[in-house]
Nucleic acid binder design. Structure first.
Lengths: 153, 153
DNA sequence: TTGATTCCCATAAAATACCATGTTATACCA
DNA sequence: TGGTATAACATGGTATTTTATGGGAATCAA
């Protein structure tokens, strides 16, 4: 019986005054299986937080090490942006993590965090921004796949 | 379950009157795991200090030894510069190191040291210089997004 | 001595672990 | 199938630990 390690589904949880949020139970199960912590960083392309398990970053570090030489300028710039921004988060016995001001601000999250599964990674959005993003994505699909048009209003 | 040894996140700590700085707790945990000391040297390309564990320099030395690369002579020179400049730093029971005048001056650090994770290495910047560097990097990414696609998968 | 470096202690603030409760979802049984 | 008991979960509050950082005493070198 093979277990799956994909982050799925969309879940909205409350952020309390201290910045604590419950990681969805499904996500916790995956993280516990692969590691003990998650890593979060500001998305480079959208107003949201991205999260993954640490071994994904490990892999990235190894790839970068092997693909360019020690003195490469590109390697330097990339590693600064990615590893400089990423931070480990461990969850307590009730499954909560404490997001930082920097991350919350980038995602414009105040009182509710929306977790969106993306397979190996997941994203955390504000309710408002996720609503807009989902609409945008569905609109984009409609344009690319005319055959679906009739089904959607 | 294997622990990860990546330097992550960006942390600003104070440099006190005696020149002491706390190494971020996360970094300390990694260093303790791999060794007891860190190694610091002046960056060859930026006004900042670079730091890593000694085994990374070991790896660098080995890579140069085995290199048949056309540019290995240049790399050899660069390596000499690093090894000539590098110095070991151990931290006290409260986790502080004492950086040298030479390093602080090169990085233009006076009262605050900003630690920036780079995966296997980390950097130490002045607040002012890091602010400018981060802005430069994010601007560069905006203009040159394609090269990031692989990292973002 | 003086000046600098290391070690140790003190403290405030921040991060983390733990406990309690209401609610929702799940399992179980008639 | 419907209803109830049970377990899992999100969430609020509190206690404990960790961490950064300041200051002082001890050690050492010039």
């Amino acid at each position: 019986m093979r277990k799956s390690f994909l982050f799925l589904d969309t879940v909205a949880n409350k952020v309390d005054a201290k910045g604590r949020v419950s990681l969805p139970a499904d996500y916790r199960a995956i993280v516990k299986e692969l590691s003990t912590e998650i890593v979060c960083y500001r998305s480079l392309t959208a107003p949201c937080i991205e999260g993954c398990t640490e071994d994904l970053l490990e892999k990235l570090a190894t790839d970068i090490e092997n693909s360019t030489d020690f003195f490469s300028e590109t390697q330097d710039d990339l590693t600064n942006l990615i590893f400089g921004d990423a931070k480990r988060f461990s969850f307590d016995s009730t499954g909560r993590i404490m997001l930082t001001e920097k991350l919350l601000k980038h995602a414009e999250i105040t009182d509710t965090a929306v977790f969106v599964g993306k397979g190996r990674k997941f994203q955390i959005w504000s309710e408002k921004n996720w609503e807009a993003e989902e609409a945008r994505l569905r609109e984009k699909i409609k344009l690319n796949r005319p055959s679906l048009k009739e089904e959607n209003k």
